[in-house]
Design a protein around this nucleic acid. Structure first.
Ligand code: MN
Ligand code: MN
Ligand code: ZN
Ligand code: ZN
Lengths: 136, 136
DNA sequence: TCGTTGTTTATAATTATTCTAAAGAAGATT
DNA sequence: AATCTTCTTTAGAATAATTATAAACAACGA
């Protein structure tokens, strides 16, 4: 339950001007209890529905990428025609319900620690993600 | 080192007619020692290079999907502008070198067994895949 | 050889995403 | 408050991967 003022400050602190559009997007993305998994198109439609104001598709793309770059959104690796994002930016894993095309968070304790025993010279590990596909 | 005859039989056994194009694609995909990770475009170009014969892009898509459906190819979940496939269809995990855009196999013993402790009613697990992103 | 069915192909259509450039809004400066 | 600068939004065009279409072609069985 963040207030509009908090979003404005968060944007300013990130050197992103607090525009009407960005604040609306923040409301839709971050003003919720549970983690939120979405595609750009999901978000685009939700903004209209939840705020009553329309934001251009280009701005939705711009903003999602800006937030992603700032570390406020995580990109989830799945093979889909659309890219999925997540408001939960901590390291965690996912179920993907293939039929419903829906992501579900897995707690780290649901998966257990993963120790990668192999290494590639000159490279370091950036992320370790488990994707568990679900079917009926 | 499979022979052409073996590919023809394999195709027939899969109720796929052994056309010149499909045999060429088999040569490029399966006539190698190590597992092969590729995009459609990689494959399209390799066919020309390795067999000297050109196969239309549409056929490359068709064939890859046919082989995928038959279980001869695995699709690797990463967020890229192109879809990655793998000739190693066993359950296994991957490094993805983000800079080089290259996949590297991880042996199961490099990752260890993964036990998913959570379940969703009415759904069963189809696959469990670990993707380890590498950076410099 | 002939008829049937499956396959290839060029090309068009679709779709997600990015680019462009002009208009608008925010913040700083007077 | 007016002005200037910089950042942002936007519609629309461009790009690029993938899928669909439908006609020509090849494999197969009779
Ligand atoms: Mn999540
Ligand atoms: Mn592999
Ligand atoms: Zn991004
Ligand atoms: Zn496929």
């Amino acid at each position: 339950m963040s207030s509009k003022q908090e979003f404005i400050e968060k944007l300013r602190n990130s050197s992103l001007r607090p525009t009407k559009q960005r604040i609306n997007i923040c409301e839709v993305l971050f003003n919720r209890d549970k983690t939120f998994h979405f595609t750009i198109n999901d978000l685009f439609n939700l903004i209209k529905d939840k705020t009553g104001e329309k934001v251009s598709l280009a701005t939705v793309y711009n903003t999602v990428h800006a937030f992603h770059k700032k570390g406020y959104l995580k990109e989830i690796p799945i093979n889909s025609n659309q890219t999925y994002f997540d408001t939960n930016v901590t390291d965690h894993h996912h179920f993907f319900d293939v039929k419903e095309e829906k992501l579900i968070d897995l707690k780290n304790e649901d998966v257990g620690p993963i120790e990668i025993q192999k290494s590639i010279p000159g490279k370091k590990i950036k992320s370790v993600e488990v994707l568990v596909k679900l079917e009926d």
